[in-house]
Amino acid sequence: MFSSIHHIAIICSNYQVSKDFYTDKLGLHVIKETYRAERDSYKLDLAIGSHYVIELFSFPNAPDRPSYPEAQGLRHVAFSVEDIEKTLRLLHEQGIETEPIRIDEQTKKAFTFFSDPDGLPLEIYQI
């Protein structure tokens, strides 16, 4: 039925802060940035390499939503990395705090979590 996941949509509380986080700190590439005046809203299409992955939205007065790894609903967004230690160093150089590295009991692969500016849990998973 499905061939792949097309994208992940994220609504942020502060567009400029989140845009900086995802582009300048995490290194995602901007495909297209659109301001929709009728909604007073931005939509930022982001890619990893050539793969479209995230739509970053801003909406005025969007309500808060709890976003903890064990809350109901979307648990987290996970990014695959070749070298978790190197990725952690790069995140820490950007001032991004991370949890300690853990090992997945099933796959024996290393992973850890960090948060975006709105507290959305993000995971890095060594492939």
Rank of each mutant, 00 (worst) to 15 (best):
F2Y: 13
F2K: 12
S3C: 04
S4Y: 09
I5R: 08
I8K: 03
I8L: 11
I8A: 12
N14I: 05
Q16P: 01
V17C: 03
F21I: 09
F21D: 09
D24Y: 06
K25Y: 06
L26E: 07
L28T: 10
H29F: 07
V30T: 15
I31H: 04
E33N: 13
T34L: 14
T34I: 15
Y35I: 07
R36G: 01
R36D: 09
R36P: 01
A37P: 05
A37F: 08
R39S: 10
K43N: 14
K43H: 09
D45W: 08
S50C: 07
Y52V: 04
V53A: 13
V53W: 02
I54W: 05
L56W: 12
S58Q: 10
S58E: 11
N61H: 14
A62R: 08
P63E: 01
S67R: 15
S67H: 14
P69F: 10
E70D: 14
A71D: 15
Q72V: 14
Q72R: 13
Q72H: 12
G73K: 03
G73H: 01
G73S: 07
L74I: 15
R75G: 11
A78R: 06
A78H: 06
F79I: 06
E82N: 14
E82F: 06
K86L: 00
K86N: 00
T87H: 04
T87E: 09
R89I: 00
G95A: 11
I96W: 00
E97S: 15
E97C: 10
E99K: 14
R102D: 08
D104S: 12
T107Y: 06
F111W: 15
T112R: 02
F114S: 01
S115L: 07
D118G: 03
D118Q: 02
G119H: 06
G119M: 06
P121C: 11
L122S: 05
E123G: 05
Y125C: 00
Q126N: 00
I127S: 12
I127N: 11
